[in-house]
Amino acid sequence: MTEPLLQHLTPDELELWAQGLLPAARDIHLAQCAECRALGERERKLFRELARLPRFAPEFGFVERVMGRVRIPSPSNEFENR
């Protein structure tokens, strides 16, 4: 019904655009549609902020606390049997 050129970008396409992966055919729509461009910019800004979130570390000694409660399986010699 609607011509692809006229269709607004879907959320998936906006994500592709923010990653620089939007197919050229849809880029044409973006070039003509201020609404999609504005939304795309807002999405890109959000992606950037999310991607910059730091990773937190648990308290020092986490590995040892975990290893203290893990049962190491008795070593098998499956490698030799294969």
């Binding site: 990773r55 570390a57 648990p58 290893m67 190491i72 008795s74 070593p75 098998s76």
Partner: peptide, 17 residues
């Protein structure tokens, strides 16, 4: 899976954060 203890530690180190 073959009971190699350093491999357990490595998995924890990789994924703790």
């Amino acid at each position: 899976q073959h009971g190699h203890e350093p491999a357990f530690r490595e998995l924890v180190r990789r994924y703790e954060r």
